[in-house]
Design a protein around this nucleic acid. Structure first.
Lengths: 236, 236
DNA sequence: GGGATTGCCTAACATTGTTAGGCGTGCCGA
DNA sequence: TCGGCACGCCTAACAATGTTAGGCAATCCC
């Protein structure tokens, strides 16, 4: 017979003590709390409300659960974020290129642009890796492996390989981070531009060239990438 | 006559009601709470204990004051951090170089290396700008102005100038950020390296080249910088 | 000399991450 | 078929944090 099924909440604050009158949380056919459901909910929450709206309580709410329940599946909030970051890298699985050494520029660009795509789709993500322990999720490592393998095949070894990898990595991450984290409203832009112009005695070049206040991020990204790749090519 | 001078604390919890017996907080000759004293204390606190030990209460304690008092001088904790970041950039005031266009590589390097120096001296700093609104403190802007002016003098204009500036900026920041934020103990390093080797089926290149687990940061920085400068030079 | 302003204080709040411990429900062995 | 046990969620609670409200003494200014 339909047991008590005290599905929370009707503890003692409510005065409804009859089992039959208490609302029964129907566990719709949906799967219960699960590692991957938590991550999915976290990504959704981050996408919709940004990183500082991600709290364990709000995350739990989305899953029809209370905050401490999450700790059965996850050790800490940082875990959730780490998982979320790696999850989005999974959206752009790196496709190995031609494999021919002379195509290294295209292959490198493919990996980096894949990364950039997901980082721009999830604007909260770029800011994360910078201030945390190393990113070592499997999805991310897969891309890193392909990137470094491509560079190795192109001819880089030892310290040059290391430096090339980091330079490229920093460029994508930094660019995406600037574009997303430093995103400012049109209002702020106008204000900042004005102030910069006002102080143009001190910062003539910045004022003239619209530092931080032109927004051709894609252009800066790809032109910058071209610079780096040219520099790398010269080394070979 | 020596007035009440109820210098806090002896409110009503203590039973000492006599003015004369109450300890009188002697305002040693030192200056009172001040904008610049707050920033100095914040930098010291950040240096000694790291960024997540920076709380308004602990900061206040250092200044012999309670937390809310800080809010008279500062609007928010973020303000404190912004101020602290700019303060450290003030430690390496950019020295204009020769001014000759053909020395642009040296001049650019001087600015960047100055930045890198202070970022490594204050390991908490590199992680900050990435996840915050644009860095627009005067000390930082001074360096940025010099950097961009140098590039302009070298011949860059318009979008190329923008891209070059960002590429260089991202390289210094990203490099310092990796070196400091991703800093791991020897123990973790060994562990991570082992795990990577164990999974070397999936990540052969990373395992072979010690991704994340070689620590020639300075080498990666300067070699990477060389790559970028070479790429820029090719553009001129 | 008296009112306003400055600059600190106490008190309090809402929000956060996280831990402790309880309890129903289903699985598994006898 | 029954009893234990582990899973997976819950309530309760805590300490820490950023920040606001409001008070009160000293100091400045007219």
């Amino acid at each position: 017979m339909g047991k008590a099924a005290n599905t929370g909440r009707a503890g003692k604050a409510d005065q409804v003590n009859s089992v039959w009158l208490r609302p029964r949380r129907e566990r719709r056919g949906e799967p219960p709390l699960t590692h991957s459901r938590i991550v999915a909910a976290a990504v959704a929450l981050l996408d919709e409300e940004g990183i500082d709206r991600l709290t364990m309580r709000r995350l739990a709410e989305r899953l029809d659960v209370v905050a401490p329940s999450l700790y059965w599946h996850v050790d800490t909030k940082d875990d959730v974020i780490d998982l979320a970051v790696d999850a989005i890298f999974g959206e752009a699985p790196p496709k190995p290129g031609t494999g021919r050494a002379e195509d290294w520029r295209a292959d490198v660009t493919a990996v980096l642009t894949g990364w950039r795509t997901v980082l721009l789709r999830h604007p909260w993500a770029a800011a994360v890796p910078a201030r945390r322990r190393p990113t070592i999720g499997p999805h991310f490592l897969a891309g890193m492996e392909l990137l470094q393998a491509t560079l190795a095949r192109a001819g880089f070894t030892g310290q040059g390989l290391s430096a090339a990898t980091w330079a490229l990595y920093n460029h994508v991450m930094g660019s995406a981070s600037s574009q997303t984290a430093l995103h400012i409203t049109d209002e702020e832009r106008r204000l900042g531009q004005d102030q910069l112009k006002a102080a143009s005695g001190q910062y003539p070049t910045l004022a003239a060239n619209g530092y931080l206040y032109d927004d051709d991020w894609d252009g800066s990204y790809s032109t910058g990438l071209k610079f780096i790749l040219d520099g790398l090519e010269a080394q070979l």
